[in-house]
């Protein structure tokens, strides 16, 4: 609507929107600030917002005590590993559904999504026992396997919606040009779908990074990702607010930064291709 908006109205909208946005963001901001306080400042009354002795000692303490980098690395391997594995399985499947649809394609897609409906807790016991018996408990491999399978339906669905937007004629042209199936997918389909694949990748890395059912139940220490590392602060240690905050920031900062940088692709990904 090309209509002039009065400045007054714009100012009011801006004020309301900023207030709400800051309120929503506040817990993160507060955690950020607290992570630079001393423990005494962290629980001071009245609370100190900006004027306190800024210190980074909490971060060194946290790293010293619970080996942050090990857990960070576990999180990276688990989230990236499971996402890449899911993509490798899902790209051919989505190709097939988008470009050689059969009578049952829709049903298969719905069935795949419905496996997502199965609550994790319904299979917790057998997975736990299977992992215990095969030595996969508390290993990164085990978690990569579980998270790959868990996110596979979403990855297939998202890729399917992106692939469907690519005109089939282009793939046919590649076929006429002498490309076999593998080359058609590698040279033509995948590069064309890069934006869609990127959103899928990002969203799934975030989902896997933050996954907190399997990671909490299937890991203990050596392969524990950041979700587990933080959960250990739920003990009375959590009452040390400054250290809790520092640990929290260390757990969420990487993914928040990644999320902010890739906002555009992410918003597209977040809608799971269902909303244009």
């Amino acid at each position: 609507m090309a209509r002039t908006v009065t400045t007054q109205r714009k100012v009011i909208v801006t004020a309301i929107a900023w207030t709400i946005a800051i309120a929503i963001f506040f817990p993160i901001l507060w955690t950020f600030l607290t992570s630079f306080k001393t423990e005494a400042d962290a629980i001071a009354t009245p609370p100190k917002f900006l004027f306190f002795n800024w210190t980074t000692e909490n971060y060194t303490t946290v790293q010293g005590r619970s080996n942050y980098f090990l857990h960070f690395w576990n999180s990276v391997i688990i989230s990236v590993g499971s996402t890449v594995a899911a993509l490798i399985i899902a790209i051919p499947a989505a190709w097939s559904m988008a470009f050689v649809p059969g009578k049952r394609t829709k049903d298969i897609l719905m069935w795949m999504l419905s496996t997502k409906m199965m609550p994790a807790v319904g299979v917790l016991v057998p997975i736990y026992l299977l992992f215990r018996d095969t030595g996969l408990l508390d290993t990164r491999t085990g978690l990569v396997i579980v998270l790959t399978l868990m996110n596979l339906p979403i990855v297939v669905w998202m890729l399917y919606t992106y692939f469907k937007e690519i005109p089939g004629e282009i793939l046919e042209a590649a076929r006429m040009d002498g490309a076999n199936l593998t080359r058609e997918i590698i040279y033509v389909l995948t590069p064309m779908a890069v934006p869609g694949i990127a959103s899928t990748l990002l969203l799934n890395i975030i989902l896997a990074w933050n996954e907190a059912f399997w990671t909490l139940n299937l890991t203990a220490s050596k392969s524990a990702p950041l979700t587990q590392f933080i959960a250990s602060y739920s003990s009375p240690e959590g009452l040390f607010y400054a250290k809790l905050s520092a640990a929290s920031m260390m757990a969420i900062a990487p993914i928040i930064v990644l999320g902010w940088f890739s906002q555009k692709q992410l918003v597209r990904g977040l809608t799971f291709g269902a909303v244009k």
Binding site: P167, E169, E172, A173, M176, M192
Partner: peptide, 12 residues
């Protein structure tokens, strides 16, 4: 060789 109505060029 085929020339398609939509040209079907590889956009990337």
């Amino acid at each position: 060789a085929m020339v398609f109505q939509s040209y079907a060029l590889y956009p990337h």
